[in-house]
Design a protein around this nucleic acid. Sequence first.
DNA 1: AACAAGTTTGTGAGCGTACACGCAAAATTG
DNA 2: CAATTTTGCGTGTACGCTCACAAACTTGTT
Lengths: 345, 345
Amino acid sequence: MTTIKDIAKKANVSTGTVDRVIHNRPGVSEKTKAHVQKIIKEHNFQINTIASTLALNKSYKIGVLIPEARAENEFWSEPKKGIETAIEEIKNFKISATFFKFNQFDSNSYQDAFLNLIKGNFEAVLIAPVFHKETAKFIKQLDKKQTPYVFINTEIKGFNALSFIGQDSYKSGYLAAKLMSVMMTDNAQILIPVFRLNKGNYSSINNRITGFKAFFKEKYTSVKIKDLVIPNFKNLEVINNTLNEALKNDIVDGIFVPSSSSFLIAECLENSQLNHIRLVGYDTNKKNIEFLKNDTIDFLICQNPYNQGYKGIKLLSDYLVMNKTPKPIYPSPMTIVTKENVDSI
Amino acid sequence: MTTIKDIAKKANVSTGTVDRVIHNRPGVSEKTKAHVQKIIKEHNFQINTIASTLALNKSYKIGVLIPEARAENEFWSEPKKGIETAIEEIKNFKISATFFKFNQFDSNSYQDAFLNLIKGNFEAVLIAPVFHKETAKFIKQLDKKQTPYVFINTEIKGFNALSFIGQDSYKSGYLAAKLMSVMMTDNAQILIPVFRLNKGNYSSINNRITGFKAFFKEKYTSVKIKDLVIPNFKNLEVINNTLNEALKNDIVDGIFVPSSSSFLIAECLENSQLNHIRLVGYDTNKKNIEFLKNDTIDFLICQNPYNQGYKGIKLLSDYLVMNKTPKPIYPSPMTIVTKENVDSI
DNA sequence: AACAAGTTTGTGAGCGTACACGCAAAATTG
DNA sequence: CAATTTTGCGTGTACGCTCACAAACTTGTT
């Protein structure tokens, strides 16, 4: 292995000078700089990150702003696990993470958490920007401090994020439609129940619906798709009544749930013994998997949330430690989950 | 951060003694050993891998035995890429890989490559044990040398492999059947063409078929499944004729190709304008993707070969550098691939 | 020519760990 | 009880890189 010492000897300079050249530090004449650079190239020298981190003796603190995982929706426990695994892997580089949690249905708690995050003065930041407007409001302060930030899960545009890691919601809706289509026959009827969620999630759920409808408009015009607004998603009875009312009027062959709450619909279908209705939804939370396994849900599309967290941290660590600039977008795979492969995902 | 020095001070011993205790080296009295261990635990001290690797100044050579990627079947280029990425990530730990390639249809080339691998005297080895018998013949020499080895892709049992990384072929066949089933109606006819491959691959292909048939036997007994042996898979005309002959006699609704060569069948279907026949196959090679995108192939099951290579190397590096013993099995996800999600996989 | 000021280059300690070496104290031997 | 061996432990250097500081060399000015 070529070391700085070797390069110094070949170039007839000291290791200090080589170090200055490598890191583009001032105080080197153009002449020797060029000379050293030439020799570095000739020997294909690359710095030993191990020795470098040891010598630097620096520590990096990463701030993480993601929703808290709730009992009824464990989605956000997955990114958290991914983040923790990544941190565990790189803790030798003196990288640590501090979590700032918020309620994903309450924009105020998002703002509070964001402010605390900013106060923390982190070297880098990982954000699930669930709320668009509120993000716009505070993100400037990170820009000002030149703090690099990465977005996961929710894609919002027009910011200086280092990277976005997540799915294209439109495409994932389109995929959901494909899966639904293989189970449908001509003139089938499909229902899309939408819970009244807050605006934050609205955009990606909307995109999924748009993608879903686009597929059928392109390929199977005989299939009819109806929307169904469910006023309250906390109360199973309300869901049950609203759904049954809708199912009374029409013969429904398939239901597409554009959120991670398909288990709520599944439960209603089971109660009304309507399990023959095909069900496609999102995310592999515990309850969804339960209904997937007993054949009430047919397909789930998984966003690989664990990996979003893991990758986000790895990306930032590479950026901080190795100075590697990441790609602007890392699309999360749209993983199709069925009863038969759920255990291997 | 707690360092060896800190521990030494707290324990009133020298860093050398702490080092001896940490690594279980001899020359420490039971009394001081216990004392130091207690303090290590109290402070939750963990060794700094960065500093350790630097001080050790050791280099590790990993031997890799995988099939060469051919133009008509790029499957094995994926694990190779994964391996190369992993090596790139950990090269600072002075870990390097040497490839030994063989023709996956020629057991002699496997044996030659294996012998060269053994000669290489590697610190660890990654193997795609395509040929069972031949593996049994040579693996003992690795056992004798205490060289740790990891298997990827092909699961063969009864060896001392550190880990296996790959799919459960039976389950993946079962999954394929599920996907086929959603596209079938009662009394459908399904064909399973089998190319005359060498014995090495035979076992996993066989398991896929068994899994496939098991699903229908359990769930849809009205569906008929027929096998079709195709004598030569190098000659498209032979395939065409054999297939057309079979399709003449029966009305076939679906074809399950239990190997990565579904593109061959797809091409025949296209030529005979039989694209309405549903097609489920394996692996996302270039040609398969082509036919997936033009709707001739409906579903592919992907083994995530890239990840198998990547994970295999990471595992061995963790084992060598950090002394972490991996799990015996890492099941590769059975990824369902359609036209709509292939670009995000 | 002498000196100040600025520019360029070299030196050496330190990051945390590994391990060879050496020395003292304890244990064994005759 | 002295001579010898064994055991237990401390010291110092090395790994490759960073950075503060010191040293050497330029340049410009009087």
